[in-house]
């Protein structure tokens, strides 16, 4: 580990009540509607991330799981400021970067790098590998050409690529090798935090295992933290220390990996775990199978975002939106059934 560095327990990344909304109403002309004899121009707002709070300590891996459209990728992009957050706060090492502009973000990007899902779209096809992987370094430190070559060679070796690949172009590589290049790029500035958005979901299983092992080895060697975003429960379970489960832009449950898998509390987490295919077990009858589908993020349901699909929903769920409350053991749940007043008052 990194030993003595600032306050040992201060979180490396802290996100408070982050909101990310997108206006998708289009131009004024697109929005014009006649209703009741009057002209109106309603706005359509996508509520992608709704009041998410999280923190990551040094050397920790936080996994974020959820289905498509739950806002997990938007959350990642907002944290690295590829989106301008609508509300809330983002702190890196205690520094508030919520309203940093491009120039102010430059030194911050040395601490925080991102690995993207699509190894084909995330590498510039007209750049050589050496230029791709040294770009963040060039931007932040500069360095001489021989210095950069030396660093590039060392990085290639770290990610398991031969030095002969230095002057090749992305199209000469397979998906797994491209993802290694993307990882090398993120390592070039020796960041403290790597945000990985579905880094293995575009890869075949055998390659997926190689990349997961590489990510874990690098973390052990350099001691950085991951915010690991994925829809794959077996992957998140393998790699994370703590897990956050998202649904419709809300964080519905967080906790240590072991607890989330052995004692999930939120009905959505339970259903998600039950739905994940298990190797070698026959598909049984639907026990906690979810009906229906994720509602639209444009018109958020009143009350609990999950209530229309929840087998346990009751009257209060339609009225009042549950908030994330600690239930002990580092686990927090946003569900009326698990609020301390209702669930096991004796405990």
């Amino acid at each position: 580990m990194n030993g003595v560095k600032t306050a040992e327990n201060a979180p490396l990344l802290e996100v408070r009540d982050l909101e990310q909304r997108f206006d998708v109403s289009g131009s004024l002309i697109d929005r014009l509607r006649f209703s009741g004899g009057r002209v109106s121009a309603p706005r359509r707002i996508v509520h992608a991330v709704n009041g998410v709070s999280l923190s990551i300590r040094r050397g920790e891996v936080l996994g974020i799981v959820g289905e498509s459209g739950c806002g997990k990728s938007t959350l990642a992009k907002t944290i690295v400021k590829l989106n301008e957050p609508t509300a809330g706060q983002i702190l890196i090492d205690g520094e508030d970067i919520t309203h940093h502009d491009f120039t102010q973000m430059r030194p911050v990007r040395r601490k925080m790098q991102m690995i993207f899902q699509d190894p084909y779209a995330s590498l510039n096809p007209r750049q050589k590998v050496r230029d791709i992987i040294m770009e963040p370094y060039l931007e932040s430190q500069g360095g001489s050409v021989p210095d950069r070559t030396e660093r590039a060679l060392a990085l290639l070796e770290k990610v398991g690529l031969g030095t002969e690949h230095l002057d090749r172009y992305p199209h000469q590589f397979s998906g797994g090798q491209r993802q290694r290049i993307g990882i090398a790029r993120s390592l070039s500035v020796q960041p403290d935090l790597i945000i990985a958005d579905e880094p293995v979901s575009a890869l075949d299983v055998s390659i997926q295992a190689q990349i997961l092992n590489l990510l874990m080895d690098l973390k052990d060697e350099f001691g950085f933290s991951y915010l690991f975003i994925t829809h794959d429960l077996s992957v998140v379970r393998h790699i994370s220390d703590r897990i956050g489960v998202m649904y419709l832009g809300f964080m519905v449950e967080t906790g240590p990996t072991g607890t989330i898998f052995s004692a999930p509390k939120h009905p959505y987490t339970r259903a998600l775990l039950a739905a994940a295919p298990q190797l070698g077990t026959k598909l049984g009858p639907a026990t906690e199978q979810l009906g229906g589908e994720v509602p639209s993020a444009i018109d958020l349901p009143r009350g609990c975002p999950f209530r229309q699909r929840c087998p346990l929903a009751f009257a209060r769920c339609a009225e009042e939106r549950p908030v994330l409350v600690p239930v002990g053991g580092g686990q927090s749940v946003a569900c009326h059934l698990h609020e301390p007043a209702i669930a096991e008052p004796a405990a």
Binding site: S174, G176, Q177, D204, V205, S206, I207, Q208, A209, Q210, L212, N213, M216, D217, S234, V235, R237, H238, I239, T257, G258, F261, Q278, L279
Partner: peptide, 27 residues
């Protein structure tokens, strides 16, 4: 065997994170 072992198994998680066994190289 390699394909099966590449999938992160439940049994992998008993405290310590074990490495996944991987198939080296590419198709």
């Amino acid at each position: 065997r390699g394909l099966i072992d590449s999938i992160p198994h439940e049994t992998d998680i008993d405290g310590a994170k074990r490495r996944l066994s991987q198939i080296p190289g590419n198709v």
